[in-house]
Amino acid sequence: MSNAAHEATEQLRAIRALMERSTIYRAVSAPAAAFAGLLSLAVSGWLWMHREPQDAPRPVVFLLIWLGVLLAASLVNTALLYRSARKRGEVFVSAGMKHALRALLPPLIAGFIMSLLEVNRPGLGGLNCHTNIAAYWILFYGLALLATGSFSPRSMQALGAGFFFFGVLTFLPPVRDLAGRQFPVAVTFMASSFGLLHLVYAAAVWIQDRRESTPAGA
């Protein structure tokens, strides 16, 4: 290849790398997703052991427990994003992160408000409450991830779509009819979504990263 062609190839590669770096932002790192998935499964397991009506936590406690999970997972995610930005010599609060927060926060806040209203809804005596809280969290988390679609990698868009469809599914009448015993169903919803979907996402990203870091023909 001539010098000009070699230089042109390098130039195109640099343009592509800069475009990807400035437009693609992974707001949920794979190790943090694995942590969130395992923690969700552990918490779901513990809640499952208290599934009998007399043992089941009140909706407000159920909400607080999952808020704790969200907080722990967010802290781990923040620490990992910080470490990864430092490693690459980039700023932590980058334009990509600001964009991601602007997209993520409105649906997350809306979902939290909906679940708060559910807990405080008078006169229902907790009927449908646990499943509704789970359904709102799953649906709005999916919407938040989908809102980052224009600048997130495909795996994150797939995760968002997974949560969104699962969230919609939980609102369908046939699924609602299954939810005779609210609390165990809500726990199953949370374990399948925040537990399993996060683990699948982490595994998919890990496999993809390994494939990309393995030289062709190796």
């Binding site: 290849m1 001539s2 000009a4 062609a5 042109a8 190839t9 130039q11 195109l12």
Partner: peptide, 8 residues
């Protein structure tokens, strides 16, 4: 740029 690469 793509033209340069292609022609080479």
């Amino acid at each position: 740029l793509e033209g340069i690469v292609r022609s080479a």
